[in-house]
Design a binder for these strands. Sequence first.
DNA 1: TCCCATGTTGCTAA
DNA 2: GTTAGCAACATGGG
Length: 257
Amino acid sequence: MPELPEVETLCRQLRTVIVGRDILSLQVIDRKLGHLPPLSGRGVRSVDRHGKRMVWMLSDGQCLIFQLRMTGRLFWLEGEELPAHARLVFSFPDGRLVLSDPRRFATVELCSPPAASTVADGLEPLEPKRLADAARGRRLPVKSFLMDQRVVAGIGNIYASEILHKAGIDPLRPVCGLGPAEWKRIASAAARILVEAVDSRGTSISDWRDLHADRGEYQHRLRVYGRKGERCGKCRGEIRRIVIAGRSTFYCPTCQK
DNA sequence: TCCCATGTTGCTAA
DNA sequence: GTTAGCAACATGGG
């Protein structure tokens, strides 16, 4: 799925086109998404994000929560033609918004406003101490820890590798063995990378596209992800690919300790 | 044909 | 209680 920077990009772009507008209708194309009412006449009050989850506040007090998972995309359309794999279509006065999702893992839920999350979002300043506290007594690899959405919301497989490379930490290190200085490096690397990725409108590694079907730019700035066998830009070591918890992980064994 | 894929959940077993 | 491993979801690309 889109990770935090990709979902944030969509939120920013969506605000300019749907906040303050009324939904004319909602058409569910893929029944796997479950039952959703047409929502006709309900306005979109706000578009927000927590981690990888997008939340629309509607004028009747209900919320729509989107989880795009692996291949969910949102596209703003002004013409007639629907993109491939269209699963859901919102009609607005000025255009249509479509959920396109080849693998059909995305979910959309209509519900009451959720309670405020106690989990820090990745774009909030990350307290190194908070990470260290959450890690106390746990032995799992630091990469899995960073991807745990109950620890920090929004970091996925690409940015976890990038953050640990910037911080100079071996992704396999058990979290309970990391010291305060290392948590500080991880927290500042995470903040830097996520902000830069948002500024780049995300990473178009394979087929990620933003609301207007444009590519992001962060794929040009990846230092380790997808670069197995290449030389590390920091120390010229050889970048390796390993598997942690079933997910590809890229790192430089020379400068990540 | 096989392997891989930006995610999440749920099960099993150590 | 924690963690790893695996399958499931479903599809497309190399």
